[in-house]
Amino acid sequence: MDSFVRFENVTKEYRAGDVVVTALQGVSFEIMKGEICIILGESGAGKTTVLNILGGMDTLTSGKAYLGEKEISLLNKKELTAYRREDIGFVFQFYNLIPNLTAIENVEIVTQMIKDPLPAEQVLKDVGLEDRMYHFPAQLSGGEQQRVAIARALAKRPRLLLCDEPTGALDYRTGRQILKLLQDQSRNNGISVVIVTHNSALTGMADRIIRLKSGKVVSIKENERDLSVEEIEW
């Protein structure tokens, strides 16, 4: 099976005045299509930088990053925008919904933006919010908001779903439900999912676990049989 996401010796340095901070140093890994991959690391390990690069929100200093055939590291600003728009679905820790739009409208943001989206209503039904579609984010619970955020990400039919600590702001029960949703979506629709988290308890549901530490890959582990979310505990 060909790799879907590929990092080849990626180094990222931040320059703050005279000080150079190395966020990533020679990071290389591969993620297969349809896999759920968890990038695991402590704060400052470089996992967010990986997410930024992968999500087209940041550029790298050296090395190469691919999504499928597309070399992300070669894209210019406009192409990056288009890349984010068409290829990536993003789920934030704090949901990042537009407070002034209802659930369905928050989904419609993306469905109105691209050519062949999933119908917003259907996606919301898929994430179990068929009754809450016309509520504003403030009227929804955290889990519900995150479901809207996931629906928003899925509605695009993204090639890659990037999740930044998707359960970070949620209680345990709800977090599980969200993870289940992500897992189901990946399994049912064959979407590759990358979850960035510091919570190692989630590793059980992943096909592949990449551990980062101080900007370097510590280990890459493939689960033989990944657990369903119901089976994992943290």
């Binding site: 925008t81 984010r84 728009r85 068409e86 934030f92 990042n96 943001i109 933006m113």
Partner: peptide, 16 residues
């Protein structure tokens, strides 16, 4: 600023 950043992430072009 946060909303703007979010929609940028969602792939809004600058003019949008």
């Amino acid at each position: 600023a946060r909303e703007i950043a979010t929609i940028k992430v969602l792939g809004f072009y600058p003019y949008e």
